[in-house]
């Protein structure tokens, strides 16, 4: 088909506008991710590679540190994401009540943590949870504990601190999404439900939650991706310790590449574990969300 000059200039312009982004993404995203795939089949230290076939995958299955990092990451995911999203949903619902006194204050207060820099808040948490720190002091005064807890040196409590820290930082962020979505729900739906005698909890569960499903899906995917890549907080709070109790996959990749004698090929293999996990989990979340809609 002969193309007119107008059609041609449209087509050229269309590409010109997206080209800078595509070129940059090609160089700094597509190329690295493919390179990383190739590298995940290479063995060797430093800059000396040789093809290792499935050697790296074999190594994964027998690497206790990797398995530890994997199970830690999954634990953080399974604990932290649901807690955070439920809290966010609860706060959003409470703050959506226009008769609530001081809702502006509460909203701003709960949102405030996500304005902080990751590094700053990690450091602050580190000082709060120091052995003689304010957390222990307070709990001792309240007689909730007998002896100070060694927060960051005890495997269990270190994980608790990490989960607490992430939840602190991101709950308000998710809450804002829910709040915005709730404000788009037609008020009269709730009024109709009240006239029909539907109790408050049922209004929340059978009206609010289903209508919020797309947003809940969005936040859960975003949070899943974020938690699977968890790095900043653990590196600053615990550096993965004590004895790898808070080591995450991202931190392990970093350690493999930049802290120990670099083992780029193996690190690339570990990084593909995250890619695959993100893919699988996103897919599951989409399927679950679709199922319920039908």
């Amino acid at each position: 088909m002969a193309q007119s000059a107008l059609a041609r200039s449209e087509r050229i312009n269309g590409w010109l506008f997206v080209m800078p982004a595509l070129v940059l993404l090609g160089i700094f995203m597509v190329y690295p991710i493919l390179w990383s795939l190739w590298m995940s089949f290479q063995v060797g230290r430093g800059m000396n590679f040789s093809f290792g076939g499935t050697a790296n995958i074999m190594r994964l299955t027998q690497d206790p540190v990797f398995l530890r990092a994997l199970s830690n990451t999954m634990l953080f995911l399974a604990m932290q994401v649901p807690i955070m999203l439920v809290l966010a949903l609860f706060f959003a619902n409470a703050l959506n009540d226009s008769k609530l006194w001081g809702r502006g204050f509460f909203r701003t207060a709960i949102f405030l943590p996500c304005v902080t820099s990751l590094v700053a808040y990690s450091v602050i948490f580190k000082s709060i949870f120091a052995i003689d720190g304010i957390a222990n002091q307070t709990l001792l005064v309240l007689h909730l504990i007998e002896n100070p807890i060694n927060w960051l040196s005890d495997p269990f409590w270190a994980r608790v601190v990490v989960i607490t820290a992430i939840t602190w930082r991101w709950t308000g962020y998710n809450m804002i999404f829910y709040l915005a979505a709730m404000q788009n729900i037609d008020r009269s739906i709730y009024e109709a439900a009240r006239i029909d005698g539907v109790p408050a909890w049922a209004r929340f569960w059978f009206i609010t939650v289903p209508l919020l499903k797309p947003v809940i899906l969005f936040t859960s995917v975003i949070s899943t991706i974020g938690t699977l890549q968890l790095f900043d907080e653990v590196n600053l709070l615990t550096q993965g310790g004590p004895s790898d109790a808070t080591l995450t996959l991202s931190l392990y990749i970093y350690n493999l590449s930049f802290r120990f004698m670099p083992s780029f090929g193996y690190a690339a293999t570990v990084s593909y574990v995250i890619v695959i996990l993100v893919g699988i989990l996103s897919l599951i979340q989409f399927i679950v969300a679709k199922d319920r809609r039908a």
Binding site: M1, Q3, S4, A5, L6, A7, E10
Partner: peptide, 20 residues
């Protein structure tokens, strides 16, 4: 107006072909 390309045929305005 020239906002949609013409797939086929001719458009003349004031005696001049305006397709492109």
């Amino acid at each position: 107006a020239g906002l949609e390309p013409i797939t086929g045929g001719d458009l003349e305005i004031g005696g001049q072909r305006m397709n492109d």
